[in-house]
Amino acid sequence: MVAETPRTKSLVLEIPGWEGHKAGQHVDVRLTAPDGYQAQRSYSIASAPEDERLVLTVDRLDDGEVSPYLTEVLMAGDKLELRGPIGGYFTWEATDNGPLLLVGGGSGVVPLMAMIRHRAAVGSAVPARLLYSSRSYEEIIYRKELEALAAQDGSLEVIHTLTRTRPEGWSGYSRRIDAELLGEVAWFPDESPLAFVCGPTPLVEAVGTALVGLGHEPARVKTERFGATGG
């Protein structure tokens, strides 16, 4: 168990017989109560296919049924029931090329991080930009790792925007992601980037609509909405 932010934890899992995954895929985690009641939720895989162990990063939703258990109760050594890897649509492999435009809100960064880690693990030179919206500096997941990866790799850019509170002297963006911000940050449509957008439904729909409005081909803009029923 690795604490990423006050609200998110990464679960490092050892899965016998795991046959590997693609960056961007998720797993379904199922919990069964002693009385037989079951609750199931989907969580994105955060680790690269090349990593030895599977990592899920879970955001704790206070009124959730599954995430409070995974982040507060589960202990190292406990067993989990999961199904996966799932989904072949919202995935990226280094051979798919790019350039890559990754847009994430909150814990929507998790499947994008799997792509960034995969890209680094195979030494891909595909230019990549991550535009990442968080409420506050403290809530930026993987902040140090992203800094380190961007520092050693000139073709990876990480651009943050903080929507609620900013530390003193913050020089990054401080507004919600809209068409104007995407116009400043995104690749031009004629560079035919592959875009992956993941986060809460309103953010994903706003970004998806804005990218298509800027002239990006809809088939190259892939989205994954978290919805409001997570947890």
Binding site: G84, G87, P202, G227
Partner: peptide
Amino acid sequence: KLRLDGNAAAG
């Protein structure tokens, strides 16, 4: 707010 992507139903 309940809308998700096809991906979500993959399982």
